[in-house]
Design a protein around this nucleic acid. Structure first.
Length: 256
DNA sequence: ATGGTTGATTTTCAA
């Protein structure tokens, strides 16, 4: 089962690219972030034509998440973080073929010390409590999404800039990610590669993609129970090379 | 020193 995560930065703009990518990459499950679409505008009929059922949780202009599954049912759908009042559409979960999928669009945080940064850390604490419960109920768990945190120095092009004072790499953010992993989750990509320079996001400015000035902030985490079954993990840079791309590329794992 | 780009709604905001 191939499971992917892609921040599409507006599904309205990117639907043709999503259709193209579904056809050529043939993932079984996909978590989308930044759909930026209210639920009544979600293109579920068009995706069904491509063979994918969908569940979604969106809002106008900002945020928005969805899970797609090819020729499979999505059951036990959870919208938002249980018990956490949130006016931003950033989390959705569903079960596919006995595997629990949690799809997150983690708060960006804007700047270390800002109100949005405090919200990011509060949000991640609520996620940690939620995932502890999900793991008890669903040992076969995949947590994927745009984490807006680069796990370590290998995951940034310039550690001098992306340092402890910087958003996406500050110590409290990395510690929050470590606490998620400490629940019994593994960074899928790191099960198969120790290399640096493998990125999932490149700023639109300064020809960052061409120069590979990126970060790895889109992650696919697998639970202890799925660790041995994780055959492959990577980032598919292809859609980032297309005309008018998302600033993110899809991250994926393959479970055997 | 601080800009550069994209998307959705504006006369900026969020990323």
């Amino acid at each position: 089962m191939k499971i992917a995560s892609w921040n599409v930065n507006s599904l309205n703009v990117r639907l043709p690219q999503l259709q193209q990518w579904l056809q050529q990459a043939a993932p079984d499950v996909v978590g989308l972030q930044e759909t930026k679409l209210e639920d009544h505008r979600f293109p579920d009929a068009a995706l069904l034509e491509a063979g994918y059922r969908s569940v979604f949780h969106g809002q106008k202009t900002y945020n928005g998440v969805a899970i797609l599954a090819r020729d499979r049912a999505l059951t036990d759908v959870q919208v938002g973080i249980p018990g956490f009042a949130d006016d931003q559409a950033r989390a959705i979960a569903a079960t596919v073929d006995g595997v629990r999928i949690v799809n997150l669009y983690v708060v960006n945080g804007q700047e270390v010390g800002s109100e949005k940064y405090a919200y990011k850390l509060r949000w991640l604490e609520a996620v940690r409590e939620w995932l502890a419960d999900e793991l008890r109920r669903h040992p076969q768990l995949v947590v994927l999404g745009d984490f807006n945190i680069a796990p370590d120095e290998r995951d940034v092009h310039d550690p001098a800039t992306w340092n402890d004072d910087h958003i996406l790499t500050s110590a409290p953010e990395r510690e929050a990610l470590r606490q998620l992993l400490a629940l019994g989750l593994h960074d899928g990509l790191r099960l198969h590669s120790e290399e640096g320079g493998i990125f999932s996001w490149w700023d639109y400015r300064q020809a960052a993609f061409r120069r590979n000035l990126g970060l790895r902030i889109d992650l696919t985490l697998v639970s202890d129970a799925l660790r041995e079954a994780t055959l492959e993990a990577g980032i598919d840079r292809t859609p980032r090379t297309w005309e008018r791309p998302s600033d993110h590329a899809p991250a994926f794992v393959v479970l055997g």
